[in-house]
Amino acid sequence: MAHLSVRTQAMPDANPFASPVVFDFTADIDSGEQILAYAVAMSGFVLNYQTNSAWWAEDAGAVGVSLTPNLIGTVVAVGGNVMLTDYDGDSAIDPPDSDSGPGSVAQVSVLAVIGTPYTSAPVCATAFGLTSGQDSSVVPIGDNTTSLAFLSGFSVAASDGTGEIGGLTLASSVASPVGNQVTVNGSVGLTNFSTTGTVDVGLLSYGTNLVGFDVQTASVTWLVPEGQQGMTGMFFVDFTIPSGYSSVAQAALLLQDVSIVYDDTAEFQLIQVMQAGDLSINACTVSGSVVLNLFNPDLGAHHYICGDSSATLSVIAQFA
């Protein structure tokens, strides 16, 4: 029997690449136990241009988030990396400044399977670098398991040059098992724009031998977009606390699909899928809000996110 621990935090607001995000699971590990497996999750991101011109918004050249984990005993140390470039001296800002707005960061989560060493731990891993739209190699899973796929990162770039975009789509999925095997799939694209891309897809495949957690798809109530403030979605998830536990101790968002729709095909300053502050945990409930955003504030060229935008997300909770 193993148990699942969950942690989430945003990249430090200092550098867009090689930003250290450290998750210490020591308090969850009993004597004789260790981290048996781990997966990284991209629970959100903000990508904000810092430009070298008088304009706030620019074309898209390449956009991405990547998370590189290392296991150091009871710590999972993740390198948080984001990229935004138009190949013309404009790039992701971090740290933020008062003129250009928020820093470019990712909300990073780690799922850690903890237990005594044995060789048949539940699958908790990340399929890195999948070509957009293509299935992964087969992943062996256990008997009678449930599999959950989620986004762990992406890279998308113009097939040729740079250009204006109509939005961003991201998707992750896991196929129905064939025997004791599954494949995962991810896709990424910039709408109205020819791109190539890769997707990192996390996979948690679990049965009754993994305890201490639950995951539920969040029913999100999306509000009407408010210009540069973006489009807010609110969610409230009620967990059933299993016997032996008394409350939710930790929780994180897992993004499965994102569709950000622009009101035109245009340049942009900021693109975002990000939780607003920390999740609120109260005994058996987890609530919060997530903001989708895409805008161009330049004079005479105002463009904003459309209400057709949406995201599919799950809340994963660790019980105490």
Binding site: F17, A18, L36, A37, Y38, A39, V40, S66, T68, P69, N70, L71, V78, G79, N81, T119, A121, V123, C124, A125, T126, A127, F128, S136, S137, V138, V139, P140, V184, L203
Partner: peptide, 15 residues
């Protein structure tokens, strides 16, 4: 920049 890490291999049946 560059960064590297180590990750559980999802495609293997043993650790």
């Amino acid at each position: 920049g560059a960064g590297v890490g180590a990750t559980p291999d999802p495609y293997a049946s043993t650790p």
